[in-house]
Design a protein around this nucleic acid. Structure first.
Length: 216
DNA sequence: AATATGCGCAACCGCTCCGTG
DNA sequence: ACACGGAGCGGTTGCGCATAT
């Protein structure tokens, strides 16, 4: 597919958002709602690409974002969901109201990875670290995991990195407590998460962002 | 007190998926 | 059935802050 550039580079700002840009974006979305991100920047008078606007809104400006530290419960839930879904951050975020995929991804990379390693567990396989080699062999489990299979079709091994979670094998699904109802955004049906999760993710696995009061 | 290093977060980039003509 | 365009996702990078030396 020929891909058109998402925006005319050169006419767009990059980097950190200013308060004024935030205000413009928020004001515009409040007035007109989300949608048509491509044309939004122009309409809102922003020198940003639509993608950037979407990301800023989803990860930082949405009013329903839960700001603050991730709780122990959320932490454990993320681990369980990751064990189940792999690096499907948007799906995981869909189960954590007010949290964004970006936030969870960052949290995973900075905190949970370390935590699991400290527990002697491999962050990708969730199995014992010293059984990684064997664990790779167990990646066959991945194919047995309906959630993963449905949400990441073989082709969707996009960008090659996802091949990573070829090794994101779920070690022993049956041993895992898959009760996803810990601090559930919506009543979850542990037995049939996959297609629903995927649909939710597509529809509204929103992202939001952690906010340390940094942003300009 | 100044400098170096590490960590965490926000943002960008490239790719795939999905809907529409 | 095919091609195109828009939207969304996941990985990576860069910047700023905090802590250690």
């Amino acid at each position: 597919m020929g891909r058109s550039p998402c925006c005319e580079k050169g006419h767009t700002n990059k980097g950190a958002w200013t308060k004024e840009e935030d205000q413009r974006l928020v004001a515009y979305i409040k007035a007109n709602g989300e949608g048509c991100w491509r044309s939004l920047p122009k309409a809102a008078g922003l020198l940003r690409c639509g993608k950037s606007c979407r990301l800023r809104w989803m990860n930082y400006l949405r009013p329903d974002l839960k700001r603050g530290n991730i709780t122990e419960e959320e932490d454990e839930l993320i681990i369980k969901l990751h064990q189940l879904l792999g690096n499907k951050w948007s799906l995981i975020a869909g189960r954590l109201p007010g949290r964004t995929d970006n936030e969870i991804k960052n949290y995973w990379n900075t905190h949970i990875k370390r935590k699991l390693l400290a527990r002697g567990l491999d962050p990708q396989t969730h199995g014992p670290v010293n059984s990684i080699v064997a664990g790779v062999a167990s990646s066959a489990h991945h194919q047995d995991n309906p959630a993963v299979r449905s949400s990441c079709s073989p082709q969707s091994s996009s960008t090659g990195h996802s091949s990573d979670y070829g090794s994101t094998s779920v070690t022993h699904p049956s041993d895992i407590d898959l009760n996803l109802s810990i601090s559930p955004p919506r009543p979850s049906q542990p037995s049939s998460p996959p297609p629903k999760l995927e649909a939710e993710a597509r529809g509204g696995a929103t992202s939001s962002a952690k906010t340390t009061a940094r942003t300009n």
